[in-house]
């Protein structure tokens, strides 16, 4: 026989309270003689009765002072049968009715759950990741330096980068502490460090799309997509360790996409109508970066002609 489970106060995926039936009936109300006692004053002393009959659990309303809602619809008449997962609202209390046969999701595994349990590795790995990340950031910086290498500045930059990683991870750890009672600082640090290292390397190659296609529009689309992707992944892990949200990937993506859209729109609105300086692509990248073959000069000159005509049309 299936048991009936009444679940209350489910917050952030952590079940606080539940009552399970132990026979073929269950009573619910404010009175102390009930199986499920609720202290909500908008519930009657004897409010509901659940009965198991013919393989189904049924619900009977005993008091009609206030409406009882099942899945947001008031119960007409006295008795209805229950489906697992139904949401019940009595008085101002929200309850979920479940049957013991209710399917459960498969077990989620913490990534690298072995090392999160191993205390030493748990701390060592993130620290190694941070150091690697700082080195990658400095290496990227070095590649973009064209004059004298100022080691002092470069180290300072690397340290600042590491500091920012820690601040980011710590902020999420604080959120995790508040929302899940578990900060998970080291996992946060680990993933932040790894993903930011990928971002650093990515910045080296930013502009390649613009350069190769000679189109700054296309280039900025690619760059924006890359940034949105990276930050979605980062946020997904941050959310995983700090919250109990289920659709983390989607949440992360939505947040990042909205932010990106906001930035794009602001830039567009701030564009000056008239600019006395030309706007053109300044990106130059090492050889082997462009895809298309070169134009012959004659072709370039005839394109020039079209460029002039385009100017006239735009003007008119």
């Amino acid at each position: 026989m299936e048991e009936l489970i009444i679940q209350q106060n489910r917050r952030y995926g952590r079940i606080s309270e539940f009552v399970k039936s132990s026979g073929t009936s269950l009573t619910l109300g404010r009175g102390f003689n009930n199986d499920v006692i609720l202290s909500d004053h908008f519930i009657a002393p004897e409010q509901l009765r659940f009965d198991y009959m013919d393989g189904k659990w049924n619900l009977k309303v005993l008091d009609d002072t206030n409406p009882v809602l099942i899945n947001n619809k008031p119960i007409n008449g006295d008795e209805i049968s229950i489906t697992s997962g139904d949401e019940l609202i009595v008085g101002r209390t929200h309850l979920v009715l479940l049957l013991s046969s209710h399917p459960v999701e498969r077990t989620r595994s913490l990534i690298l759950s072995n090392w999160t349990a191993n205390n030493r590795l748990r701390i060592a790995l993130p620290i190694i990741a941070v150091v690697v990340s700082i080195m990658v950031a400095m290496l990227t910086d070095y590649q973009e330096t064209s004059d004298e290498i100022r080691w002092g500045e470069m180290f300072a930059g690397g340290l600042l980068f590491g500091f920012l990683l820690i601040i980011w991870a710590a902020s999420w750890a604080l959120a995790g502490r508040l929302l899940r009672h578990k900060p998970n600082f080291f996992p946060q640090l680990f993933y932040t460090a790894l993903i930011m290292a990928v971002l650093s390397v990515g910045t080296l190659f930013s502009g390649y799309a613009e350069y190769a296609t000679s189109s700054s529009g296309f280039g900025s689309v690619i760059e924006t997509t890359f940034l949105v992707l990276i930050f979605t992944v980062l946020l997904k892990y941050n959310l995983r360790f700090a919250t109990e949200l289920k659709r983390r990937g989607l949440t992360a993506f939505s947040l990042v996409a909205v932010l990106a859209l906001f930035v794009v729109v602001m830039n567009y609105l701030e564009e000056k109508e008239f600019s006395a300086s030309p706007e053109y692509s300044k990106v130059i990248k090492p050889p082997l970066a462009k895809w298309a073959a070169d134009k012959p000069v004659a072709s370039y000159l005839s394109d020039l002609d079209s460029q002039f005509s385009e100017l006239q049309e735009r003007d008119n």
């Binding site: 350069y211 000679s214 008239f274 706007e279 462009k290 070169d294 134009k295 394109d303 100017l311």
Partner: peptide, 18 residues
């Protein structure tokens, strides 16, 4: 008017130019 700019890769004197 505003400037209208175009970029391309052109072959000049056996070399590749932006």
């Amino acid at each position: 008017t505003n400037y209208n700019c175009e970029e391309s890769f052109v072959e000049i004197s056996d070399h590749s130019w932006k």
